[in-house]
Amino acid sequence: MTHASDLVRVKDLSVSYSAAGQSVPAVKHATFSIGAGEVLGVLGESGSGKSTLALSLARMLPAKARYESGAITFRGRDLLQMSEKQLGAVRGAEIAIIWQDPALALNPVMRVGQQIAEVLRAHGSRDRHERVERVQGVLTEVGFQHPSEVASAYPHQLSGGQRQRVGIAQALCCRPSLVIADEPTSKLDSALQVEILALLAKLRALHNMAYLIISHDPAVFAGWADRMLVMYAGEIVEEGSREQVFGHPLHPYSQGLVRLSGAPAGTPRQLLPVITGEPPDLTRLPRGCAFEPRCPERMKVCAASPPASSTPEANRQVSCFKYE
């Protein structure tokens, strides 16, 4: 589904890692787009390739990763063809990242105000006073009452939630049009999690930014994601609006995930619904559908060849033989 207003278009993107002499596919033939101001959620378990997908949009993959095929078009420019220098101008200014662990993403021996100001400076803010003012402004925006005190603090003087706010301030200070957040709340306790997500939603409404939110926890997307991708073993197995995917999941894997998160709190451990089996070994994927070994509804055809993507409803895609 592509529209004229799309901010990012990813077409047939495949990424692999080389480990111990062999190449391991992490993302396979991913095709999707993010519209301006849209919140796209990516749901999947560990190793499903969702982080790789997120980092590849900023061309931030580690050196051992390789782009096998595809194109990432951001505002009409192909990110995969850009030089490091051109990317430097895009990262932080147009595409920004909110990091998973705010304690690790901040330099422990630099004041946080300085670390935000450095982002501004990297993108052309030459005047020191202007930078100081903008740092105070963005710190206020992310909810600090006393921005100048926070600006002169070192990361260890702040709490986890405060550090994540600083991380958000760093990401938002240049008003990017796309913000990538890889598990932005997984290192925070659940009360803070709600607070941070509310802050992200508020900022999005304020500045009309698009978000790519990655999480293994469906609760993260509740209430604000516009569209969802569900990933399994490096493939996008289902795509649709949040209401569609969570209200009426099509793929057996999505159905499993939704059933999991739907269990009422306090359910005894042994009664919790589970997806049986283990996450797939990416070096030895089955010939057919990657989910086939764990699928409760597997058919003969599933083991023979991988399913193609089909469109059972409007604005909706799923890779499963049930719908072919």
Binding site: M60, V90, R91, G92, A93, I97, E118, V119, A122, G167
Partner: peptide, 9 residues
């Protein structure tokens, strides 16, 4: 890595 992600050279 984070600083690189914010466009640092």
């Amino acid at each position: 890595l984070a600083a690189r992600g914010f466009g640092a050279s």
